[in-house]
Amino acid sequence: MITRALALLAVGCLFSSAAAAFNGYVEVTNDTGYDIHYLYVSPAHAGDWQEDVLDEDILPDGHTVRVTVRKAKGSVYDIRAEDEDGDTYTLWDVDIAKRDVTFTLDDID
C-alpha cells in the first residue's frame, strides 16, 4: 500500500513539474561595436521572431538589457539582434535558465 502511494506521488510530481511554466530572464550584452536597434527573443524553433523587445529603445554598444520571460513552455530560446547597419547576430538554442548572452562581431550572420 505504501509502495503504491509513493509511486502515485512520484508520477504526480513528474507531471506537475513538466506542466510548470518557466519564469525567468536573460541579460543580453552588446559588445559588437555598434548600437543594436532590434532584439528578438523567441522560443527555440518557433518559426518566426517575436516582437522586438527593445520597442523604440536601442541597446548601445557596451550596455546590457534584461529581457524577462513569463509563463513560457521552456527556457530554450533563439535570440537575434540587429544593429544600426542592418547586420544581424543570431544565437540558436540558448538555455536562458543557465546562461546570459553577449553579442560580439564573431556572432554576425
Rank of each mutant, 00 (worst) to 15 (best):
69 V>R: 04
43 P>C: 01
57 D>Y: 11
45 H>C: 10
57 D>S: 11
3 T>C: 14
8 L>H: 10
39 L>C: 05
58 I>T: 15
82 E>P: 00
45 H>N: 15
74 G>L: 09
30 N>Q: 04
60 P>G: 05
32 T>Q: 02
54 L>A: 08
69 V>L: 13
40 Y>I: 02
97 A>R: 14
49 W>Q: 05
103 F>P: 00
83 D>L: 01
31 D>R: 12
20 A>D: 09
66 R>C: 00
46 A>Y: 02
64 T>A: 00
77 Y>E: 01
95 D>L: 10
34 Y>F: 13
20 A>K: 10
13 C>P: 07
65 V>E: 06
105 L>K: 14
13 C>R: 07
51 E>P: 12
86 G>E: 08
34 Y>C: 06
11 V>T: 07
1 M>T: 12
89 Y>M: 04
35 D>V: 11
16 S>F: 09
61 D>C: 00
87 D>S: 12
83 D>N: 07
51 E>S: 11
32 T>D: 03
2 I>L: 15
71 K>G: 08
40 Y>V: 03
29 T>L: 09
21 A>M: 08
69 V>C: 04
60 P>T: 08
107 D>H: 07
10 A>N: 02
89 Y>H: 03
80 R>D: 02
4 R>E: 15
56 E>P: 05
47 G>H: 02
62 G>Y: 03
98 K>Q: 14
62 G>W: 03
60 P>D: 05
76 V>E: 06
15 F>P: 04
51 E>Y: 14
67 V>D: 00
24 G>W: 10
27 E>T: 14
82 E>W: 03
50 Q>V: 13
106 D>G: 11
9 L>Y: 11
26 V>R: 10
96 I>W: 04
94 V>F: 03
76 V>N: 02
55 D>V: 13
46 A>V: 05
46 A>R: 05
94 V>Y: 06
